[in-house]
Amino acid sequence: MAAGNPIDPIHQFEISKIADIQIGGLDLSFTNSSLFMVFALSATVMLFLIGLSRRSIIPNRMQMLSELSYNFIANMLRDQVGDQGRAYFPFIFSLFMFIFFCNFIGLIPYTFTVTSHLIVTFAFAGLIFIAVTIIGFVKNGLGYLRIFYPSGIPIFLAPLIVPIEIISYLSKPISLSVRLCANMLAGHSILKIFAGFTVMLGFLGFAPLVFLVVLYALETLIAALQAYIFTILTCIYLNDALHPDH
């Protein structure tokens, strides 16, 4: 909580240094953001270490959870990309689990939401965008440029269509990252604002409290949904790179 104003919905997104590290003029400090990235990563690893340690035929809950998440992403990748997408499964799966746990850990009070910072999500989306572009050119050669000029369009429209297609292509990483970040940022701010109402209203605070409970359920849904949307759009972009004709 901020010292001056007890109800400060933006304060939860502040980055603070835990260990100050400066290497060659670069600020590589270990911040609370880094700490919660480590948490998300260890949560993923723990889920699979514990879940898959027994490997029984009749799975317990942890094993079910890890196997379900594996199947979920494997099916998504097969539906969207087809068999060619199998090579990219490790990346897609890690991406989904990391974002999923970042979103969910951020829902716990007094934690930090890594994905509420645009630079984090943009780093993901930018990396995906560059990787997908390289994959597209490697797999299709210069024929990949055809995605900027869809077939069946008269040649005199090309000067208009090609820039539009290029802008549309370049806007992919921006829309991908802004969507995830904005959802997280808005959701957590609203939660904090309504929690502030509860404190301010005293006895009458039960009304916003009821609303807060409902809102929290919605935020849980959004946390899962946004991780899903981010992953499925990555799959769709990958599919466009592998099969540009469709």
Binding site: I167, S168, I174, S175
Partner: peptide, 9 residues
């Protein structure tokens, strides 16, 4: 988001 991103680009 799709509209805003394309406009921004």
């Amino acid at each position: 988001v799709e509209i805003v991103a394309a406009m921004a680009v």
